[in-house]
């Protein structure tokens, strides 16, 4: 590849792209690979880059597609038997919250944003504890803002599986944040 342009990209954008990929895939090596593949794809397609969007947003778009591809492949390896569907953790048989999962008041204004860096580290740790498929559904829905129809297609799951996975992911993440941040 032509040296100077690549050097410039790496210096200017590699950390930004890594920060985007890491909370989505939770694996530094995979995130680094995705960033590398993004630069390679960008370089191969540089003739198609017309400057209609900024270089930065163009790289983001390529990386987003790489991440979705990564999920598609990972889900293909997982979804044959859907082992993650079927177990229930947060609710009793009668559908009531289990005592250890009772939502408790956090004593904050829920409409305010949270600025603390440490909070986002805890969020990331809690998210990384989710099972693979739950995590991918959560990431595509809440980090990428994808539509549920697209998520089902990419991850090869039915709409009813989607809701079960998203529901469990959010219930578990809420409990984890409560224990490790809001009421620690």
């Amino acid at each position: 590849m032509a040296g100077s342009k690549i050097d410039e990209w790496v210096m200017q954008y590699s950390d930004m792209l890594l920060r985007y990929a890491l909370p989505r895939v939770h694996d530094r090596e995979i995130a680094k690979d995705l960033v590398q593949e993004t630069f390679v794809a960008a370089w191969r397609n540089i003739d198609h880059f017309r400057g209609e969007i900024s270089e930065k947003n163009w790289l983001y778009t390529i990386l987003k597609n790489k991440i979705i591809d990564h999920f598609r492949k990972a889900a293909n390896r997982l979804t044959d038997s859907l082992p993650e569907i079927g177990e229930e953790t947060a609710f009793r048989n009668n559908g009531h919250w289990k005592s250890e999962n009772y939502p408790a008041a956090w004593g904050i204004d829920y409409n305010q944003g949270i600025e603390s860096k440490e909070f986002y580290e805890v969020l990331d740790q809690c998210k990384s504890k989710l099972k693979d498929l739950q995590n991918m559904v959560f990431t595509m829905k809440y980090l990428e803002g994808a539509a549920s129809e697209e998520i089902c297609k990419v991850l090869h799951i039915t709409p009813s599986n989607y809701w079960v996975l998203l529901h469990r992911a959010k219930v578990q993440l809420r409990s984890c944040l409560e224990k490790n941040w809001f009421l620690r």
Binding site: D15, L22, P23, Y120, L123, F138, L143, K170, R174
Partner: peptide, 23 residues
């Protein structure tokens, strides 16, 4: 749960803006 779930939705969306990861 409803209030907290909505807060988590907003925070998750901004997660990468708060990351300090670097090569």
């Amino acid at each position: 749960f409803s209030k907290q779930a909505k807060l988590i939705t907003r925070c998750a969306h901004d997660a990468h803006e708060h990351s300090t990861a670097a090569f």
